[in-house]
């Protein structure tokens, strides 16, 4: 057995077991086009049809819906990065903010996003703001939390010795930030970004539910459950999973580039 085969074998075994269970469930629940649990090959076929069976601009295309969701997730993620990092910088440099802001940041995540989402949509809708922004805000709501908390830890990562080094050069506060705290926080930031990227996708999908969105994977999920189209739900789920994977992959690539610039270690 080669090394590759040895590492692949356990993964493939689990995969085969899962597929077997899935087929069993599909068989027991009846099957057919409106099956409660469609079989794996049926889901695969539905995904393939959604991806290749319609032009990408058509509302029947899964690519089209995935792109809508991806745009929302990306906008929300960008917003979350800006807000999360700025909050962390403020908290690390102002003790008062640590005590006053941190509890609210934690509290923000204790409110279910499903409850927040319709509120944001309604309030902004009344103010005449519709489209991407309300959805991006909801995605950012979920996404900023790991970035803010991760960066607070990261910016505080330098030990007293590394800080003393700066002090002996009588470095300015800006130098301590730019040449010590910021670079020291990068490994923390990328852990946070991976979590935040998947949360942005989740947030984008959740945001599409109450907006009554015509487009997006969330809208497909909603429509699917409305009309009992289980295959449509499963196909949208698969696309959502692929989207999350792509998001993690992208942050992973950025992290690798950073590590390479640092000589191979984070």
């Amino acid at each position: 057995m080669t090394d590759r085969a040895r590492t692949a074998a356990p993964v493939l075994t689990v995969l085969a077991a899962l597929a077997a269970l899935w087929y069993l469930a599909a068989f027991l629940t009846g099957g057919g086009p409106r099956a409660i649990v469609p079989a794996p090959h049926e889901v695969a076929f539905a995904v393939a049809q959604g991806v290749f069976g319609a032009p990408v601009t058509s509302p029947h295309s899964l690519i089209y819906h995935a792109a809508v969701t991806a745009a929302t997730a990306l906008a929300g993620f960008a917003l979350a990065c800006v807000v999360g990092i700025l909050l962390a910088v403020a908290i690390v440099h102002q003790r008062v903010l640590d005590q006053s802001l941190m509890p609210w940041i934690v509290a923000s995540q204790t409110v279910p996003v499903l409850a927040i989402a319709p509120m944001v949509v309604v309030v902004l809708g009344n103010a005449g703001i519709t489209g991407l922004l309300p959805k991006a805000l909801i995605a950012a709501w979920l996404s900023f939390f790991p970035i803010a908390t991760g960066m607070v830890a990261g910016l505080r990562a330098p030990d007293s010795l590394q800080l003393d080094v700066m002090r002996t050069y009588s470095a300015s506060g800006w130098d301590v930030f730019a040449k010590l705290r910021w670079p020291a926080s990068m490994s923390y930031l990328f852990v946070s970004l991976k979590i935040a990227a998947t949360l942005a996708v989740v947030g984008a999908i959740v945001a599409e539910l109450p907006t009554g969105a015509q487009a997006g994977l969330g809208a497909r999920l909603l429509a699917g459950s409305y009309y009992g189209q289980t295959l449509q739900i499963w196909a949208a789920l698969c696309m959502a999973a692929l989207l999350s994977l792509a998001a993690i992959g992208a942050t992973d690539l950025a992290q690798r580039a950073l590590i390479r610039s640092r000589g191979g270690r984070a």
Binding site: Q162, R262, R265
Partner: peptide
């Protein structure tokens, strides 16, 4: 310092 305290990045 006692330790090199180099910045690893």
């Amino acid at each position: 310092f006692q330790a090199p305290a180099l910045y690893p990045w």
